[in-house]
Structure formats: C-alpha cells, structure tokens
Design a protein around this nucleic acid. Structure first.
Ligand SMILES: [Mn+2]
Ligand SMILES: [Mn+2]
Ligand SMILES: [Mn+2]
Ligand SMILES: [Mn+2]
Lengths: 227, 227
DNA sequence: CGCGTTATTTTGATTAGTCAAAATAAATCT
DNA sequence: AGATTTATTTTGACTAATCAAAATAACGCG
C-alpha cells in the first residue's frame, strides 16, 4: 500500500528539475537560486540545500554562488515531468472540457501521480498532440521537444498577419485576460501599433476589436507569421 | 508551486483513514493495529504512532491495546478517498480501456492527486456510475454509500441462478484468476457443488464450463439471486 | 492462578523537506 | 579601492513518516 514512481524521484525532486529546465528556457544558462526558490515558493536556503542534494545524485551541476543546471539525466527526468504535465492539461481541456485558464494547477499535482501506462493511453486517446492548450510543446516519450523560436507581440513585425502559437504565462489572471481579449492560441491578428516609450502594444483581430497591452504582457504571447 | 488538497490531509493520512474504513467492513468494529499495519505495509509501531496522531486530530478514536475506528469526520474523509479511488478505476477501464485487473494500483496513487473539480467532470463523463469495475459501490459526493449485503459463492444457495455483483479482492493475481475463469461482475452462473470438508466450491456458467475454487476464494465473490 | 505466547506500545534513530536567521561572498556604487 | 547593498550559503531547528528493538499488556492454556 506504499506508493512509488519509476526509479524513484519524489514529487519535490521532480518539481525542482522541471523548474530548472523551464527557467533555463530549454537552454543551458545557469539558473539562480533566487529564481529557483521563487518559482518553487521556498526560501533561498532551501533551494541551495536541495540543489546540493540533487548534485550529489547526479541530476544537476551546481556552480556555488552562480547557479545550477541540469545533467543529461536530470533533463531526461524533467522532460518526463513536462510531458506528463502537458498531456494532462490537454486531456483536461479536450476531454473533460475544463477551462484552459485553470488546468495548470490541476496538472501540477497529477503530473507526479500518473504512470507511464496511463500516460500512453491518454496520449493515444488525444491523438498524440504536439502542443497543450497553451501552445506549449509536448515532449515525446523519448525526450524530443520542439525547440522552435517564435517572435512575440513585443518583437514581431507591424501590420503583418500573425497567428498566436503559444502563451508563455501559466497564471490564471493572465490567462483569463488573454481569454477575455480573444488572445488564444490559434487566433489570427496583427499588431497595429507599438510604442516602446510608453511600453504599449496594440493588436487587432480583423477590422473590429482592438486590444492594448503592456510590453511585458505582449512578450508572453508568441506568434508566427501567417500565410 | 507547492501542492495541496482541500483542508489538507496528506496522502498518508488519507490512506490510513481509507484502510481503517475498509478493514472495519463499513461497520464499526475496531480495527487492530496489526491488520492496519499489514494493510498499509508498515511495522505495527508505525501504525500505533500514526493512529495516536490521527486521534489527536479528531479523525479516529483509539482504544489503546484494542483497536481504532473512525470518527464521523474521519469517515467523511475516508469516503471521499474511496469515491475518488473508485471513480478513477472506472475511468481507467471505461474510457482508457485498461484492464480491470491492473487499475487498482494506478488509482492508489491518483486518488490523492485529483481535485473535486476534475472528479465531478469525470463522474459526469462516466454517467454517475454506482459501482466500479470490480463491483465496489461508489460513494456519492455526500458520502452516501450502498451498504447492501450480498451472499458469496461460499454461502449462497446451490443450483439457483446467480449474478456476480462484486469481487472483494484487489490483488492482480486473484483478479486475473477471476478474469480467466469468467468470474467477472455481471456474469451469470450457479453453484453446483459445495464441499465444506474439502473446502471446495464448483460453479457452472450454462451447461458448459465448470470452475472449482477454494472456499476462501469463493468468499471473495459476491452474488445476488437472478430472476 | 501463573506462565508463556502474541500483539501493541514505547523509545531512540533516521530521512526528506522545510524555515529563520546568521555568515559569507559577489556585485555595485561612490 | 573601500564601503554598501544584494544574493547565496550555512547553521540550527522543526515536522511528518518511518523502522528496529526493547518494554509492556492482554490472552490463552494447563
Ligand atoms: Mn508539480
Ligand atoms: Mn501548459
Ligand atoms: Mn493511496
Ligand atoms: Mn475497485
């Protein structure tokens, strides 16, 4: 009646590894203890302690005073967690018809509890999706993940037709704003104005509706040129 | 990024409470520390320590040296866990088409990770089932559970037509035996012979197939008179 | 009734994960 | 360069959950 997970990484360890990967932006830059601690909602000393333990397990490399990043093995584990997270989100939205603004918190917990068997069934049921409801790419079972780089509403060309491919912010507040403003993955729009000094970006969907948002927010919406 | 559950009971606490309920056979008999420890796969001293802590929290009443049972609040929590467990099993079999012999272990973990929101969606998707794939009754959202008492293949009348309503043993070994022998919930059969001295029961489905099983095993298969 | 067997409880330790606060190192600013 | 600010690490302490092994209580039998 005790529970486990393949080759045993606790959900705490899984969350640390996942967060290190996400904060290093799928790249190899060092993640600071401060950022890691904030993301995991622990005090910095806790992050330091945990990172040293992960380093001793060979899951991360730690440059004291500078930061941490993943070993190949740590990355493998992290990608597994991210795959589970994103497939679960997709299931919750596509099958259970939940709101895409609220599924992140659910997946945060379920990602540690679902077996490979169940995950594979889910993946098949969903038709092996390439991205989750936020447009986040879903790693394959073998840890391949689409690393394509996109422009954002803060950096793209003006007046060109664009399609939203991804929202890079999991907070319900931001997602609800996006939902309300019609800024969902898949939507078509163009940026009609960008004022760097004022930090404002204006976008339009068709001739009608115009939405103005701050540069930081605009930077969280990834787009690809359309047609 | 830390995780939680409504009014916070750890998965360990949830498993203790659930197991106490299951071992007291939905009744009010005291559960011994030995049985509880065995069910939870811990040493008896651990069960004692935990039960004292649960008693301090008002979730159980402990009669030292005799046993433990649930308070109303402990029972409420336990029924919630059991509801989640059984709805998850039903989902895994009915939607993901997993084998009814293997879903118990999956549910053992997922039961602690699923929110009320997701559970309600699942319940609706499944059409508010009254029982899980093993025939175990699913408590309602308000903690009502079908307490009907059934005969078993070890106690029922001979030669009467019967329908299997429930298998009271979660072990994959037993369930695979049941599956192989065609002894699934819903199946029709009759007991053609019972030898108490030898401890053997023989059942037949139609005129064809006869299966012989031991008394203990027969006692794990609950049946209702048919027609 | 007393003695041995068996179950339960207690005691002392251990591990994972955490925090508060002090110590230290690095970065930044005169 | 020296002083100040900021980030990181260390230290000491705590909680939840567990085990091994010793102590104790209840049971069951002659
Ligand atoms: Mn998580
Ligand atoms: Mn997502
Ligand atoms: Mn469980
Ligand atoms: Mn069941």
């Amino acid at each position: 009646m005790t529970h486990y997970r393949s080759a045993m990484a606790s959900s705490t360890v899984e969350d640390y590894l996942k967060q290190i990967l996400l904060l290093s932006a799928a790249g190899d830059e060092l993640v600071s203890m401060g950022d890691l601690a904030t993301a995991l909602d622990v005090v910095p000393g806790t992050a330091t302690t945990m990172v040293k333990a992960l380093a001793a397990e060979g899951l991360v490399t730690h440059r004291p005073r500078y930061g941490v990043n993943l070993t190949a093995e740590g990355r493998r584990v992290a990608l597994g967690v991210i795959r589970r997270h994103r497939l679960i989100e997709t299931f919750l939205v596509n099958v259970l018809k939940m709101d895409w603004t609220e599924v992140h918190a659910e997946a945060e917990l379920l990602e540690h509890a679902i077996s490979d068997t169940v995950l594979d069934r889910l993946d098949a049921l969903l038709g092996h999706p390439a991205a989750d409801p936020h447009g986040d790419p879903i790693p394959t079972r073998h840890g391949k993940v689409d690393a394509q780089v996109y422009a954002t509403l803060a950096t793209c060309l003006l007046e060109k037709p664009l399609r939203i491919v991804r929202i890079v912010d999991q907070s319900p507040q931001f997602l609800e704003f996006a939902e309300q403003s019609g800024l969902r993955p898949g939507e078509l729009l163009r940026v009609t104005d960008r004022n760097l000094a004022a930090g404002l970006v204006t976008v339009r969907k068709g001739p009608a509706r115009a939405v103005t948002l701050g540069l930081a927010a605009a930077g969280h919406i990834l787009v690809a040129p359309e047609r």
